[in-house]
Design a protein around this nucleic acid. Sequence first.
DNA 1: CGCCTCGTTGAAACGCCTCAAGCCTAGTGG
DNA 2: CCACTAGGCTTGAGGCGTTTCAACGAGGCG
Lengths: 259, 259
Amino acid sequence: MRTMNGLSAESYTEDQDAGNLCSLEHSCGFHSQNCICAALRTTFGIDLPKGAHKYALATGQELDPETLPNSPVIGILTGAVAIVAHLSDGRRTITGLFLPGDYINLATLQRQFDGTITALTPSAVQLMEYPVFEKLLSRSDTARDHFIDQTNNFLFRLLDHSNDLAKKTPIERIAAFIFELKSRMLPRSGHQFNSITIPFGRRDIADYLGLQPETVSRGFTTLTNEGVISLPEADLVTIEDVRRLRLIANGGRPRKRGA
Amino acid sequence: MRTMNGLSAESYTEDQDAGNLCSLEHSCGFHSQNCICAALRTTFGIDLPKGAHKYALATGQELDPETLPNSPVIGILTGAVAIVAHLSDGRRTITGLFLPGDYINLATLQRQFDGTITALTPSAVQLMEYPVFEKLLSRSDTARDHFIDQTNNFLFRLLDHSNDLAKKTPIERIAAFIFELKSRMLPRSGHQFNSITIPFGRRDIADYLGLQPETVSRGFTTLTNEGVISLPEADLVTIEDVRRLRLIANGGRPRKRGA
DNA sequence: CGCCTCGTTGAAACGCCTCAAGCCTAGTGG
DNA sequence: CCACTAGGCTTGAGGCGTTTCAACGAGGCG
């Protein structure tokens, strides 16, 4: 079995992601139609070149960027992958949250980036070493456009997230987080249209929203007590009042009533 | 005089930015060698096509993205441009800070983005309507690579910024902000190597760091009292102890001494 | 059954925000 | 030239809220 960095390339099989995937004919796991995977196959044929492999990641498993070969581009196929940063005294932050269809482009980074790539849930990723990826971009216009668009959309999501972190109260952040998940996660079959499954725990939510786990918990109970959401399970959110939740997410719960 | 959105295209002249620019032969204002401007000229010749114009922005002047034509890509030439978001009760956030060499890509945004593009200082921008930009990317490999790299580097800077906003204390954020400016701003002639000019005021710093202006002011005075920096002017920071400032920026000043 | 992790709830404290006032510079008009 | 105003920066004092510390219950697993 081929291994790299303790990852087993063969451990990932297509049918593992049948549960939470879109129904595209190519089961690469990406949302959009013009995904890199499709271009990969049309460009290189069915047999992917060396330097392009799928890997399965267990929850908590890390990809140390320094040990990855040839500055790869990582495409998220299934699950949830985060860039986790640690401060000296133990503070933990999820600086980036990557869901299926997102890319982590480690190529041509002008500076070392601090943080580790960590799977928050069992995940599958597509690694493409930089030479392969560059060849792909130059050969396929659709792949290039798709990649630029996807990167740009992720960038603007980060801007929104900065807005959340900078000036929103904990409850507002949680409300915004619910909407973010709602828009980014594929709806799971068997779920109601206004139900969202949170794929990770309170601690990860807290580290993503810049809060403490206790504060996240309190926020959820507050929203529940007010009838805006309901929590059948700790990781299952049902939006009961979309309008009010939207208002809260957009700043409807300031810190003080103010003058 | 051609005008658009109240902007005057002719009001910008090359010599206006002679003071704070790199010494590249093409005075487009960008940092890197393989900039879009150079590719613009080699691709389209000296006469830029319609849909590619320079504009000068006064401090506080806004570019409403909805009124901009053809989903342009905006290249920052000089100054400092921000994406500013407002919450319903007046809270203001600078979600993105764009300095010379950065791009704001409004093309193919899948969602409306909330916020206005605002000049924090007198600035100059290069607008490229999307058709022009796409033609440029498909014709010039260097322009394409440069744009992807620049976007990706900006994305990772945003990740670092999220780390700042999420879990750092005010003083740590200010320290990190000083380093960010130091690395992103071109050194001004006549300044010492460890002096940084902050191109905007306390309020903008606060809205960028998710703080209140008073807290920013207090942070600067604390760092000054401890001898880590000195502040000859309110907008001129001199780093006196790089090592200690670096420690602080990386989490050396937790909220509590902890167990 | 014991152990560990996770989520929730409670109580207290520290810290940032809020409100307020004073100082300084810059711009304006007399 | 100076009085006057306006806006930005700084400093002070107090309150509210998130953090911190702590305990409890539920679920998973050896």
